[in-house]
Design a protein around this nucleic acid. Structure first.
Length: 569
RNA sequence: CGGGGCGUAGCUCAGUUUGGUAGAGCACCUGGCUUGGGACCAGGGGGUCGUAGGUUCGAAUCCUGUCGCUCCGACCA
């Protein structure tokens, strides 16, 4: 490919609409252009990278036993009604009506489609396991599309669905996909972590998010500095923290005027925050009040709370009246003296505290010498706190660190949620009808590209990992109007192509600076410069984008040396 | 959907406070000159100032509606 024949309009300045690095750089490098909010055209450079990412995904999916298919994007409402998701999916689903008044949607995901595809053909356990995947556009009418390709309304996604005859098989399929994903992200050269994730409403089973580590990431993850434990902050398990044993003192009420926050109480009474008990009151979607208590220096993790409250789908902060109705006093709450039957959840670390301070359920009063084991009645004890940097790892003696990441892929087991709803059943060895055990495994392709840029850039532009670079090497003749330089550049370019290198020749007649700036911006892993010295002394320069390292070789050695350097990158 | 910000040339933005002939840099076209890090000189093309209405002798500028973009929040791959 030659630059004069490549549609890659680079921008010297950063368009105002782009906030994050990957978005800015993709626009500047002439990779993408916006059609409307959350909708983008992929120009040749971006599309080459997308195809390289897809190729890696395909190889690993196929190697793991997956078979590629393609299912409709436009999907009939019926199958969604059958699974029960037509009404619940909400405004996020793009719905369309055809000329006959039939309803359809643009698929936000393909569980219904693939399950109905399989149920009509698979009858016997002998036809299982089965793994089908596709790389397809998906549609979600996001409330707020943002960050360029990171959160669009139309996005490219690889989705694989596994069908097994039993749980054991499903777990095997899960393991295969987990390993395949690990290979995929390793091959792309990305720094990532498989992170234990909360799969909330989707139901039990395993779930990992493959998170590319980057500061601009939307998800906050916690990982152990010693073992390989990593989890989303919402999911991270926490050990009980034992407090030093103390003599148990009698409960005492203290006047604490206007001390409605932990900081104020702690300061007023001269106690450290970890001697106080923090109260947070929630109300469920059915208006049940749930009182939660954690140590003063901790935070409540509402996802853990939701999972503990039967039937609750969401929580909001409780209204003051609702708190009073169960005997609590906003700002001065404790589990003591709360109306019987009220749901009270106490973090397991709180139960280990001695002579702590907690609200007295009366305005401007707190109790001191609260001893939860003695004083708390009818409470649920559980892990409900949010992980913090420095917490002990639940699996080893290490400590937790926090970082941010971009969720680029996710794997989870579905069990029989869709196979039951859509009657995807088979006959087992004993002739009994059973629903298939399913799993689903997604990779956001465009998001992965954005994540790669987010993780690999500097002030001059993108620094592509070679496996997904739009071109591996760019050959730049310093003076495009100098026939001798052009001739040598052509020669090097041809030798690179012959050696199997994915090369680009910058044959523009622009000044050298323009071509160098573009090369840095677009981020080709290696740049080969052909200049006057090449003509006069038979030497040219190979420059590594990431390190800035340059080596000088003869024209004849160029292709061989490039191949060698690419191998080491 | 709640809360901020912004819509003026292809891009980045000035001009809006205090109403009076539409601006700059970059990009683009022509010619010259130049060629190892986004040159230089000369000439040129390009905007119903998002849109609809109102106030005014006169509106990019003031008022109202509306559309779009963007950031934060709730939601999510």
């Amino acid at each position: 490919m030659r630059t004069t024949n490549l549609y890659a309009p680079t921008l010297r300045e950063t368009p105002a609409e782009a906030e994050v690095r990957s978005h800015q750089l993709m626009l500047r490098a002439g990779m993408i252009r916006k059609a409307a909010g959350g909708l983008y055209s992929y120009l040749p450079l971006a599309w080459r990278t997308i195809k390289k990412i897809e190729a890696i995904i395909r190889e690993e999916m196929d190697a793991a036993g997956g078979q590629e298919i393609s299912m409709p994007i436009l999907q009939p409402a019926e199958i969604w009604q059958e699974s029960g998701r037509w009404p619940v999916y909400g405004a996020e689903m793009v719905r369309v009506t055809d000329r006959h008044g039939r309803q359809f949607c643009l698929g936000p995901t393909h569980e219904e489609m693939v399950t109905t595809l399989v149920r009509d053909e698979v009858r016997s356990y002998k036809q299982l396991p089965l793994m089908l995947y596709q790389i397809q556009n998906k549609y979600r009418d996001e409330i707020r599309p943002r960050f360029g390709l990171m959160r669009g309304r139309e996005f490219i996604m690889k989705d694989l669905y596994s069908f097994d005859k039993d749980e054991e098989g499903m777990n095997e399929s899960y393991k295969k996909m987990y390993d395949a994903y690990t290979n995929i992200y390793n091959r792309m050269g990305l720094n990532f972590r498989p992170v234990e994730a909360d799969n909330g409403a989707i139901g039990g089973g395993h779930s990992h998010e493959f998170t590319v580590l980057a500061e601009a990431g939307e998800s906050s993850i916690a990982y152990c500095d010693t073992c390989d434990y990593a989890a989303s902050d919402e999911k991270a398990e926490l050990k009980v923290i034992k407090a030093a044993e103390e003599e148990i003192l009698p409960l005492e009420k203290k006047n604490t005027p206007d001390c409605s926050t932990i900081e104020m109480v702690a300061e007023y009474l001269g106690l450290p925050m970890e001697k106080c008990i923090k109260a947070v009151a929630f109300q469920t979607d059915t208006d049940e009040v749930v009182l939660c208590f954690v140590r003063g220096d901790h935070e409540v993790n509402d996802v853990k709370v939701i999972n503990l409250v039967e039937g609750a789908l969401e929580l909001r902060m409780a209204e003051d009246d609702a708190i009073r109705a169960v005997g609590g006093c906003p700002g001065f709450m404790s589990p003591i003296d709360i109306k019987e039957g009220t749901k009270i959840i106490v973090d397991h670390t709180v139960m280990e505290m001695y002579n702590a301070c907690a609200g007295a359920n009366e305005k401007d009063f707190h109790y001191i010498n609260v001893n939860p084991k003695r004083d708390f009645k009818d409470v649920v004890v559980a892990d409900i706190r949010m992980v913090q940097e420095g917490d002990c790892c639940p699996h080893c003696n290490g400590h937790m660190k926090m970082t941010r990441g971009i969720e680029a892929g996710q794997v989870f087991t579905l069990g029989t949620k869709y196979s039951e709803a859509l009657h995807a059943t088979f006959l087992d060895e004993n002739g009994r009808e059973k629903p298939m055990m399913m799993g689903c495994y997604g990779i956001g392709v465009g998001r992965t590209m954005a994540a790669a840029i987010e993780q690999n850039n500097d002030e001059n532009g993108i620094i592509w990992p070679k496996a997904i670079a739009p071109f591996e090497v760019v050959v730049v003749p310093v003076n495009g109007k100098n026939a001798q330089q052009m001739e040598l550049a052509e020669k090097v370019y041809k030798e690179l192509k012959d050696a199997g290198v994915d090369a680009l020749l910058d044959d523009r007649k622009d000044r050298a600076g323009v071509k160098f700036k573009d090369a840095d911006l677009i981020g080709y892993p290696i740049r080969i410069t052909v200049g006057p010295k090449t003509v006069e002394e038979d030497v040219l320069e190979l420059k590594v984008r990431r390190t800035g390292e340059t080596v000088t070789v003869s024209v004849g050695e160029a292709a061989g040396k490039t191949v060698e350097m690419l191998t080491d990158l």
